[in-house]
Design a protein around this nucleic acid. Sequence first.
DNA 1: GCACACTGTGTGCGCCATACACAGATCATA
DNA 2: TATGATCTGTGTATGGCGCACACAGTGTGC
Lengths: 244, 244
Amino acid sequence: MDENELPRVLQQLWGIEGRSRPGPKPAFHISDIARAAIKLADAGGLGAVSMSKVAAELGFTTMSLYRYVDAKDDLYVVMLEHAFAEPPVLDPELDWRGRITAWAEAFRDALRRHPWILQIPIQEPPLSPNQLAWMESGLDAFDGTPLTPQDRLSAMLLVNIYVRGTAQLTANMRTEPDEVREADRLYTERLTMLATPDRFPGIAATLEQPVDEGYAGDFDAAEFGFGLNTVLDGIHTRITRQTP
Amino acid sequence: MDENELPRVLQQLWGIEGRSRPGPKPAFHISDIARAAIKLADAGGLGAVSMSKVAAELGFTTMSLYRYVDAKDDLYVVMLEHAFAEPPVLDPELDWRGRITAWAEAFRDALRRHPWILQIPIQEPPLSPNQLAWMESGLDAFDGTPLTPQDRLSAMLLVNIYVRGTAQLTANMRTEPDEVREADRLYTERLTMLATPDRFPGIAATLEQPVDEGYAGDFDAAEFGFGLNTVLDGIHTRITRQTP
DNA sequence: GCACACTGTGTGCGCCATACACAGATCATA
DNA sequence: TATGATCTGTGTATGGCGCACACAGTGTGC
């Protein structure tokens, strides 16, 4: 095997400690950076996270961060890793459908806690410990089904994509529900003005049906499960087709 | 109706021309801005798009762009609108499944042509003409089914999300296929090293199965349709459940 | 006790989005 | 036809950003 070393961040996240070396002791740890950055992001979105702001939050200079992190992208990796703490422990009593549903809801909750996750530009597939643990947890949900490992991966990714996608849609995630409602009202108003029935009959039809009050709050509760069940129905079809 | 005017960009995209006014004639049009920006983005990703670069491409100063566009976000709106030209015309001979498949493939192709679309931070739901035309086209695919307008919206969004999500996954979209293959090789190598069977049995199992050669090329062709069919199976289940 | 690798710091560069003031162009109106 | 309002593109300036680099001090292994 060649000296194809892992990037430094991943080494640190996996706890591959370097032997004791000369020089001053590090004043803090990447987990401190993660905490500070997440605090800023939770409060003001990903845009509020800059090297200088994070450093200031820690009480150090901007450049000191670069002793722990090679570039801004690495900061994102560390933030993600800490935002996704331990994956949910899935009840083995449940069937695959119950398990993957619990997994999806845990994922959704994490995204709701840290909406900035959706703003992070994804450059590379995940390799950090907690990310892999979530992957494993999602795959394990299909234990007992006749699905092949590849099919399980596809199914898990499908659910993953669904959760991300729906979260993205509601990612007008202003923390204030009033703002969400107002933005939604303005949107439907404009849509009603622009999507006239003659040119956009399909869109207009969806607008005619009165939207439930408290729509924003209801979406996550009802609509999320509704769409998820559609996805799971598709996976179910594949499973039954697998065992004729 | 209050003076709740549309943002300027949307007005221009909808061709709401202001009456003739004093002052010099504009030297160009937002579509010129869109073309220049898309050219840059196609070549170097969204990061290569800056106000100064776009302006230089047009042969004007940076600040001149602000006479046409209120902020950078508006530039993104214009880019999106022009990248999604006319939506696909769906063959009415096909059933809903054939139609929405064609729609999904057209969407995927657009994303493949302009990968930077996935990098655009989405702030607001779409209101521009071509975006709505795509929405309408996707909704129309379900004509003839017993689905309610709301269900059609959900189904269309589900497919939309699926296409975006899978494109995101393969959005290591280096234009060079060699780079994709190399990145993929490196990833599986590292994953094999980190996801040991004792701690991550599920992940390890997916790695054991030998991956087809030409994986990167095959994904879009085979895997895309496979996953899409799973989603459509779910929608099919909902349709048949609708009509007992 | 020495050499050296490492620490946090300060300075500085190039790029970015965009606020603002300005001179010239052009239309509606007198 | 003259004029004033209002638009145009431009030049300049500001504050922020990520990050390269040189530096002085610190602690470890020899």
